[in-house]
Design a binder for these strands. Structure first.
Lengths: 160, 160
DNA sequence: GGTCTAATACTCGGATACTTTGTGTCCGAGTGTTAGGGG
DNA sequence: CCCCTAACACTCGGACACAAAGTATCCGAGTATTAGACC
């Protein structure tokens, strides 16, 4: 029950991409965060498939958010990178063994599965309640007003 | 982000162990649920280490709950089997790269980590709010009053 | 017949292979840029 | 001087190895039972 490590990178990328007008290449994002460029590219591909970021090819290409940061939830990013499968899968144990329950009597989900799914829903709701813009605001509050603009300037600066 | 499959087995075992006066061997629990006996034994060892069940050795030995089912939460079982580590680990990305934050200015946790940990807490709280006794009650409501007694009789019956 | 003893059969516990998932990397397809030549 | 063209450099995307954790299994240590022998 451990979350994929790439989720953290993807979230950081989305926060710094917020407010960016020009595309930012994956290699530059990797350099900024000091992480593996190849592996980060994989995570960004996940975000692209999910439609959270738009990839622009070509010489001055890169990644760009598809919509406002306030319209992207943390849950969107987590599900894009880690998959949207449920954390608990019910194998219908109650229908197996010598005292197996009849399939016809199993219209309602197994009580155990219901508890696990409720917890899963609470987890997702907590992540859905926070947007990338909210996180960026927290960062500003913690690191100062000019922190994010400096980051944007660094990402936008062309080093060629 | 998938939960170990053994968690489901362990939960089913705890539910049927509730109300049992005599120890139940792991092999019998496995036969009842029609699952691998060897692997189920591993999960039960986890429950034993966590102090949720008490193992009795010898010819008529087996497993027994250490306390009332109403005093065992679903979270206890999940953490015993799957480990109590956090689902999200913060690698302090903000302290890396060209614009790294000073460690001295990182007294508060990273905003991203805070969001993830809040969601983690919500998930755990939802699991902590439900006890094994609650689940057993749900089973009775769904499968009838005599369902669980029949199971207990089957588990207690000696087939030698 | 009662009691002590020893062999037994059954239990859990940890140490050992195998499969699946996650981690990390690489090279090829595609496109905007840009330099050069021609009109 | 302006425009067209072609080569280029840089981008993403998916396919390819490696490592770690989950899954499944086995055999050894320990104990209550039980049968037998002795008193």
């Amino acid at each position: 029950m451990k979350l994929s490590g790439g989720v953290e990178w993807a979230l950081h990328c989305c926060v710094v991409l917020a407010g960016m007008q020009r595309p930012v290449p994956a290699a530059r994002l990797a350099e900024f965060h000091d992480v593996s460029a190849s592996y980060l590219a994989k995570q960004l591909q996940g975000l692209s498939r999910a439609g959270l970021v738009r990839s622009v090819q070509g010489q001055s290409g890169g990644y760009l958010l598809t919509r406002a940061a306030s319209e992207i939830t943390v849950l969107d990013v987590v599900e894009a990178v880690d998959g949207d499968g449920r954390t608990f899968v019910c194998t219908e144990v109650r229908q197996r063994g010598p005292l197996a329950a009849e399939p016809a009597s199993c219209t309602a989900p197994c009580p155990i599965a219901r508890v696990m799914w409720n917890a899963d829903r609470a987890w997702r709701e907590a992540l859905r309640a926070v947007s990338i813009a909210d996180v960026a605001e927290d960062v500003t509050r913690a690191s100062g007003t000019e922190a994010l603009p400096r980051v944007r300037a660094w990402l936008g600066a062309v080093a060629r």
